[in-house]
Amino acid sequence: MIPLEYELALAGILFGIGIFGIIYRKNAIIVLMSVEIILNAAIMNLVAFSSYAINPITGDPGGQVFAVLAIAIAAGEVCIGLGIYIVYFRSRKDINLEEATRLR
């Protein structure tokens, strides 16, 4: 059995890498990918906790159910994000986040 701490540590590291990507990179698509990594880290936490829940054989299926839900939502989110980028790209011919200051 893998200790739960290891799972959580891995999730934390991934989360950190994702945050770093969001702040450091200027390309919007990479930022969205970093968001995906963060989401994955979160989903991994859900699954890890569900599999270490009180029931020793099956764990607690609730966590897995939410993981599936989160995966579906994440996929939808990517679609919407990329859709916004494409619309934005059409109007600005560029998706560099540094220049995306029109909302100011």
């Binding site: 986040l97 540094e98 200051t101 029109r102 100011r104």
Partner: peptide, 14 residues
């Protein structure tokens, strides 16, 4: 403070 730089906002949020 409002630079319009999304990443600056995110950094603040984090």
């Amino acid at each position: 403070r409002q630079t319009g730089q999304i990443q600056a906002y995110i950094a603040a949020m984090v």
